[in-house]
């Protein structure tokens, strides 16, 4: 298959089955981009999330642009992004035309409540899986906990958390560098 078409369709699939924002999308992205297509590793996808957190725009779009760019340069970035927004444009246009009370329909509510459970399942599995591969020493575990505490108890913005973690990473690196000298 044409690689651009492949990029477009894969990201359209991801966009079409994501409910509830950027992080809910992580399991789908790992499944398609890492396990199926091998376009980027689990670690790279997390890196893209980290950078998308501190750059303007919608998380999912930014991650799509990163993966598309890595695969096929600038054109790839644009195609992947168009892919991830395509289902939204189609679905929202249909809903806006025909269903004014879409969100209030009982059947839609029941289905969405069911989907929320699916998102719980997918996300908890993804968290455990990624935790195993990325949280290996005391430092990373401490940052993981500190990051959660900052956002949960202190309400620190996710941008600040990402930037601080980056700076800490740099300091750790310098300290270790000194030790080994």
């Amino acid at each position: 298959m044409n690689e651009y078409l492949d990029l477009f369709l894969t990201w359209a699939k991801i966009g079409g089955f994501t409910y509830g924002g950027g992080y809910a999308m992580l399991p789908m992205i790992i499944r398609e981009v890492d396990e199926h297509k091998h376009w980027a590793s689990e670690e790279e996808i997390l890196d893209y999330y980290a950078m998308s957190q501190c750059t303007p725009g919608v998380l999912a779009v930014n991650v799509a642009t990163f993966v598309g760019y890595k695969r096929k340069g600038v054109m790839g970035g644009i195609i992947a992004t168009l892919g991830v927004i395509f289902p939204s444009i189609v679905i929202i246009s249909i809903i806006a035309t025909f269903l004014n009370n879409f969100a209030d329909e009982p059947i839609v509510r029941h289905a969405l409540n069911g989907i929320s459970i699916a998102v719980c399942v997918l996300m908890s599995k993804t968290l455990v899986k990624m935790g195993k591969s990325s949280l290996k020493d005391v430092k990373t575990i401490a940052i993981f906990i500190a990051s959660f505490i900052s956002v949960f108890f202190l309400g620190v913005s996710t941008i600040v958390i990402s930037v601080c973690a980056g700076i800490l990473g740099y300091i750790f690196f310098r300290l270790e560098d000194k030790k080994s000298c």
Partner: peptide
């Protein structure tokens, strides 16, 4: 090295998203 710590921080945010849902 920077990305290694960033990944851990992002996982903390994922944990928060999991808690939320």
């Amino acid at each position: 090295a920077v990305f290694k710590t960033l990944r851990a921080a992002v996982l903390g945010l994922v944990l928060y998203a999991v808690y939320d849902i």
